[in-house]
Design a protein around this nucleic acid. Sequence first.
DNA 1: ATTGAATTGTGATATATGCAACAGAAAAGG
DNA 2: CCTTTTCTGTTGCATATATCACAATTCAAT
Lengths: 219, 219
Amino acid sequence: MLSQQELAKSPLFQDISYEDYRSLLTCFQAVQKAFRPGDLIYDFSAPNNDAVGIVERGGAALIRIDEEGVSTVMEELGPGGVFGRTLAFAGSSGDSMEVVCRTPCDVLFIDYPHMLKRCEHACGHHSVLVQNMLRLMNDKAQALSQRVDVLSRRSIREKLLCYFRQLSKKAGSNTFVLPFSLSTLADYIATDRSAMMRELKRLREEGIVRSDGRQFTLL
Amino acid sequence: MLSQQELAKSPLFQDISYEDYRSLLTCFQAVQKAFRPGDLIYDFSAPNNDAVGIVERGGAALIRIDEEGVSTVMEELGPGGVFGRTLAFAGSSGDSMEVVCRTPCDVLFIDYPHMLKRCEHACGHHSVLVQNMLRLMNDKAQALSQRVDVLSRRSIREKLLCYFRQLSKKAGSNTFVLPFSLSTLADYIATDRSAMMRELKRLREEGIVRSDGRQFTLL
DNA sequence: ATTGAATTGTGATATATGCAACAGAAAAGG
DNA sequence: CCTTTTCTGTTGCATATATCACAATTCAAT
């Protein structure tokens, strides 16, 4: 349950009054939960789990673990981040997917299908919620597009540069800070960590990037 | 302009009456255009192009062309497919993105930002449209997730198998047909074509898949 | 039917990337 | 504070993948 101030900041309940918010919670069987770093937030392999989670505060990550136990970061979820089985099409049968808490966060679980269905007694605020949800899905699609943009590059060098340009653009500056560790970055661009380090060294030597810890500069 | 029957099949105008449909067209400055295979449907590099396109009928593809002229298939768009600059975050500065017609198709262009904004005189059917749009964005996010799933695999073999399992799942059978040519497939999984062919041969030799032309069977 | 273009199939070679293993630096936890 | 874990940085070696090059085949258009 959110306070009035928190409500104003909520990605999903933007522009919704406190009363409407309360009635929507029951309408969508919404449940909010708090998590600590390392906690398992959501398990895709669990059956009859059609709920969708929305990160209201803090950060989490969507992880895939394949048959051999290799884990890959599928998405980094910040406030407004959306996840759920119906959204991910849990890839190959063998591997499992889960959402893990990174920094202390609040997650709201709602009955998502309800939102897509034509609803007879759809109240007024209902449609505002749908619109907010559309905005979140829009952001998600955008984030995924960027990810595909990076992953579709043919070499480690190109992947790195593509990702760096994205971050640089977002930061509005040639200098930016990585949102995670270098080892997680290797995961993110789906390559071997040591190979990535080697390529990074070359980029530095050739004067294409400068880096100090997680701070980078494109030249 | 759609006929009444076409309206019923339209992904975006589901459950909207013909009258409402007409008024929505003007409200969202919608324009519908028909295209022939090979036509350029949309150019991301064109400025002040904030419209969003929705494939109503037929098929198209979102293509990225990098500095060196290497082109990559970013998305395959069928009916209900959505594209636009605001959705793609046209990656790195150097390369261009465009949507090209594959099979004869109708595309509807609408003022998308209008849909996300809080609208004073938001009419009733307005919210139905938003809900339909949410469904389309949901599908798009799902498709992109699957793409990421494939691209994040570490080897050609794993990429192929992952993609094959997806197609198999969609077809509801071990046997399925590729939606495009083998060379395009290489593009799609972001690897070299000849390397992919070699790996495919191995998969066949090891009895993991059987293939005849574009028809495949997982064993 | 006949040309031309795109697709498919396959090899020989160079190279980029993955793998395993290690050690110091930094961060997290008690 | 010390301990433990994670992160960083680097190497030699094996191998997967890209490059280039060449026919055979299918497909599209005239």
